[in-house]
Amino acid sequence: MAAQKIYIYDGSFQGLLTVLYQLFSRKEIPFAIEKESAYRKNLFYTAEYISNNAQQADFFSDKVKEFISSQALTDSFHAFLADETKVELDIFKYFFMGFKLGKKVDNYLTKDYIRKVQELARRVRSENHRLKGLVRFKESIDGKYYAALAPDNDLLILLAPHFKNRFAVQDWVLHDKKRGKAVIYSAREKDWLLIELEADFEPELSQFELEFQNLWQTFFISVSINNRVNPRAQRQFMPKKYWPYLIENPGSSY
């Protein structure tokens, strides 16, 4: 076998699948797989850039579905969205075992990388689930609904379909301030689009917006039962890191 190399890709999941396609067809085991943006030159290993190729990526995902399972493909996609470096190598190893073991691979929880892929996938799904509730839209002056968020994981792409189903009849924007990107949805087109949007973008609000924010704050205060105050449980379910983007003010009822 040739000396181990570092493989570099454009940072998209399709790009990663292309790398995996190449590795498996060349029967090579990588030293590392890194996003272009994260790669630092390394004296001891040679690097190869593999450019994104939709056909190869599709071919590879079909093989994963055929020989492992569609769940395995979904899990690795969710794990990929996690805020975790080196996840690519774990995904490689996971598929490597997967092609040997078939869909049983998910039972081998005693292997670190299999557990890791599943755990990262779960972490991403759980933040996704949480944010479906915690995202707050504000009505802008032109009638669009705008929400800012700063999630741990790169999951706009998972949230978008949920809000598309829910708010099909209004225009909305989901803005990931941490990564400087956004999903914009158009009610007329019934479709959404991922765009770049600078972190300090703020829309101008509609004249009724503050009134409803006020009403919500009032409701938030009055639903809490005073002699049962429990900030610990509150923080556990709704970690402080999400508070800056809420409308209500935790702790305001006592």
């Binding site: 509730g133 809490s224 105050v229 429990n230 610990r232 509150q234 709704m238 935790p250 702790g251 009822s253």
Partner: peptide
């Protein structure tokens, strides 16, 4: 889906 948690948790 839970949308928030009140001060009583």
């Amino acid at each position: 889906i839970c949308h928030s948690w009140s001060d009583d948790g």
